[in-house]
């Protein structure tokens, strides 16, 4: 299994989640986060804003589905067609085991 952590724009969150749900990945967890990227935040006038609000979406998926999920997030989270700075990042990490508490059993 794989854990997908996607950091996306707050205004794009609904689109990303709808896309994931449509692709068959309804389960997701969200956290509000602040962060900055390679551009070191945004400079507006003399002020540098380096705590930009984003949404962190956590999705755990079976091994073979990575390409599909990443494609959905990439296509829905990108602003305009060409994309822009601040659209976010996707990180993929391995998950060794998953347990569903209500079933007291191994598996997603």
């Amino acid at each position: 299994m794989l854990l997908i952590r996607a950091i996306v724009r707050p205004e794009k969150k609904d689109e990303v989640l709808a896309g994931l749900s449509e692709a068959g990945f309804n389960a997701a967890t969200m956290v509000d986060v602040v962060g900055r990227g390679k551009q070191k935040g945004i400079k507006i006038g003399g002020m540098v804003y380096d705590e930009i609000p984003k949404i962190l979406i956590l999705v755990v998926i079976p091994d073979g589905e990575k390409e599909k999920v990443v494609k959905v997030i990439l296509s829905t989270a990108r602003s305009r067609n060409e994309g822009a700075f601040g659209d976010g990042k996707i990180f993929v990490s391995p998950v060794e085991e998953a347990y569903t508490i209500s079933k007291n059993a191994l598996g997603l």
Partner: peptide
């Protein structure tokens, strides 16, 4: 674990 079942949560090991 609760009587409701659905919605009790998930555990991941990384």
């Amino acid at each position: 674990r609760t009587d409701y079942g659905i919605g009790d949560g998930t555990i991941f090991v990384l």
